[in-house]
Design a protein around this nucleic acid. Sequence first.
DNA 1: ACCGAATGTTAGGCTTGCCTAAATCTAAGA
DNA 2: TCTTAGATTTAGGCAAGCCTAACATTCGGT
Lengths: 218, 218
Amino acid sequence: MLTQAVEDYLKAIYEFQAEGGKVSTTGLSEQLDVAPASVTGMVKKLAKMKLVVHEPYQGVELTSAGEKIALEVIRHHRLVESYLAEALGVSWDKVHEEADRWEHVLSEEMEDLMDDKLGHPTTDPHGAPIPARDGSMPRSKLRRLSELAPGEAGVISEVNDHDAELLRYLGELGLFPAVKVRVISSAPFDGPVTVRINGDKHALGREVAGQILVEPLP
Amino acid sequence: MLTQAVEDYLKAIYEFQAEGGKVSTTGLSEQLDVAPASVTGMVKKLAKMKLVVHEPYQGVELTSAGEKIALEVIRHHRLVESYLAEALGVSWDKVHEEADRWEHVLSEEMEDLMDDKLGHPTTDPHGAPIPARDGSMPRSKLRRLSELAPGEAGVISEVNDHDAELLRYLGELGLFPAVKVRVISSAPFDGPVTVRINGDKHALGREVAGQILVEPLP
DNA sequence: ACCGAATGTTAGGCTTGCCTAAATCTAAGA
DNA sequence: TCTTAGATTTAGGCAAGCCTAACATTCGGT
């Protein structure tokens, strides 16, 4: 059995890679809330286990074995999130931290039962795709709000969890998942984005808009 | 936050105490599957934390602070068991080991939600009482099958988990929780107990009968 | 091309909780 | 009472992961 720490690192590395970004020691250190030196130590351990390739000073990359494990952890995480939201009515902004703890204790049987109960969902409550059991990742249709063209409409699906500041801001706007927005203007996509939310116009900073994921509507 | 190990030790100590037995190093060592020396070490640590009183060579006893924590852990455990059985249809003989892992990651909110969902049960699927939130333990009506008088009837509520041999034996008899039994004879209560189960007579060894808990019927 | 800031790694140490082996204590039977 | 088997504790170590401080590397700006 892998330790919880190993699973957490693999998941974090996967998520950095998925964002297209290079996986830096500092990035992981912030994400996992440990000192950079601790990351280096663990990364060396993961490299010895053939779960990542580590080029000193140049970053780290999952091997296919590492990616497989990361996807299993993420599947657990997102199924738990979905289950908590759906079956227990846990609020959208709390499922994440709960799932972070549950994902490590969930047996395969429980995973299957929850999956059945939920009718084999392909996205979690944030709209993020749930990997299939074989590790294949459903193609996400999500885009950043700031990438929608003016006039285009979409549904808020996900914001970066953990970002309390942003969540509060979105709360003030009445912005939650499944709220429909329509982009009114952006000038010229590296400035603020103006959107119509529930009939009212709002100007969002580029940074905030960049963190809001939407599912475009036809 | 307490570590998982501390919680496991407190729970195990509580359970030994509840059985009326003296809490021995060896007993804990077997229950927790660690070496006796490890138990001594942890017990000394718990004593320093004022969660137990440790009289060297004479055993260990929970303080009221320790008992409070043990009851919280047991409440989590039994609520999870109940929830898994009820909401996810997990089979009676598997909920225990699953709950052993879940109990440590369950937040108070989740506990409350599950408790609500279940309608505030007072016993788990094995019939064991679920401590209330304030730590009070519902009085259990359970007795050992071998303690029922001839002619008395009861409902099978619980057998010692972990005992694969016994479980298999009970399975052969078609014996599961909530099966009604009637004691036909026992001679004279320190020999085998003969019971009627689903219409058929069965002779159970004293030892087996001693491990079966029943809820007496009026 | 250089220099300093930022980033990353190494070295050394700590805590938790486990282990084995070697003492030590307890208690039961001769 | 004495012996000794079994239970318990002590002593010494190990592995996992974390930390801080010191050293090394990279890279952007002049």
